[in-house]
């Protein structure tokens, strides 16, 4: 099977879906040159006017998607850096998320908003954030955050086929992750988590790039005879708690790892839901791993200190492991 990166998986999914359905178009900034992250690489050549270079106007980009979807098209729009969503929060949060409900169900808004999130490149406070929690809080939106190339393609295809607005978050540090990705189209259903690594001692629920970090932590801990189970929700809203709860019932211990700021982050929801739904199975408090309560710093030395990593997961696991004789 061919090996592809996340950067290749995104335009491949878009290309295959756009070939299937002429109502799909892709709009955003600098798309004809591949977009800032290569997510539209090669699409302009194949799809011409269906790949639209917009002005730097995030409100109009997101609003364009709302109006075009209400008028029967299936827009995919890119907000280059997730940090830029501040410019178009009204269009996403008050318009596309709520139209269906406000109009008594009459509107159908099949929209995908793709965006790149995450730190790790010294892009500092306004080009590095993981803001997924903002959108998980909004009824009417679905939020997808894949952790590898295979999931990226399959989840993006499902997001495009879904009849609801989907925020599709690509993690910048994942862009070069390589994996076997089939050439043919395939759909991974939204709202279904996956156990990325089976284990018996502690469940680590990890999102985005933290799945990679959790795998590293699992490798380290395996050397000490500690077995981690790594669960990737893949879709943050709707959230597949069943898979998470089943894992916690098996391991009786849980760590929730996210790259975003820990306070009021997405991990807090998972931790709360675990204690509500699996309290009797827990042998220790649910631990959280996330970024400290500061903006993302610029200097590599500061950013490395800021970013949650495998070591933080190992430390959290150690805190809740039973004392050994």
């Amino acid at each position: 099977m061919p090996v592809k990166t996340v950067t290749q998986a995104v335009p491949e999914a878009l290309s295959q879906e756009m070939s299937r359905d002429p109502n799909i178009f892709f709009a955003g900034e600098d798309l004809s040159v591949g977009g800032a992250f290569g997510t539209s690489q090669g699409l302009k050549k194949d799809f011409g006017d269906r790949v639209i270079d917009t002005p730097i106007s995030e409100s109009a980009i997101a609003g364009l998607a709302v109006g075009a979807a209400a008028a029967g098209l299936r827009p995919v729009v890119e907000i280059m850096f997730m940090d830029f969503v501040g410019v178009c929060m009204d269009e996403i949060v008050n318009q596309m998320a709520k139209m269906k409900y406000m109009f008594g169900g009459k509107a159908t808004l099949p929209i995908v908003v793709t965006t790149a999130a995450g730190a790790g490149f010294s892009m500092a406070a306004q080009h590095s954030q993981s803001l997924e929690a903002w959108f998980c809080h909004i009824p009417g939106l679905k939020v997808v955050m894949p952790s590898n190339a295979y999931d990226t393609k399959g989840l993006l295809i499902s997001a495009i086929r879904d009849d609801n607005p989907v925020i599709f978050i690509v993690i910048k540090r994942n862009l070069r992750l390589r994996e076997e990705v089939p050439d043919e189209p395939y759909a991974i259903p939204l709202g279904v988590a996956e156990v990325k690594r089976e284990g018996s001692d502690v469940t680590v629920v990890a999102t985005g790039h933290m799945v990679t970090q959790a795998q590293r932590a699992a490798d380290q801990l395996a050397e000490r005879g500690v077995s981690l189970e790594v669960v990737d929700p893949r879709t943050l809203s709707p959230l597949d708690m069943d898979t998470i709860v089943a894992s916690v019932q098996k391991t009786s211990r849980a760590v929730v790892a996210q790259e975003g700021v820990q306070f009021c982050g997405f991990g807090a929801e998972i931790a709360a839901a675990i204690q509500e739904q699996a309290f009797d199975y827990l042998d220790a408090p649910v631990k959280r791993v996330g970024a400290p309560f500061s903006p993302v710093p610029f200097s590599p030395s500061l950013e490395e200190a800021w970013l949650p990593a495998a070591d933080d997961i190992v430390a959290a696991v150690d805190e809740i492991l039973p004392a050994r004789a």
Binding site: G63, A70, A71, L73, E91
Partner: peptide, 18 residues
Amino acid sequence: IVGAGPPIALGAAFACHY
């Protein structure tokens, strides 16, 4: 939301154009 209409109408007009 005051001012929410223009981008949405732009999108509907875009659909007609498309």
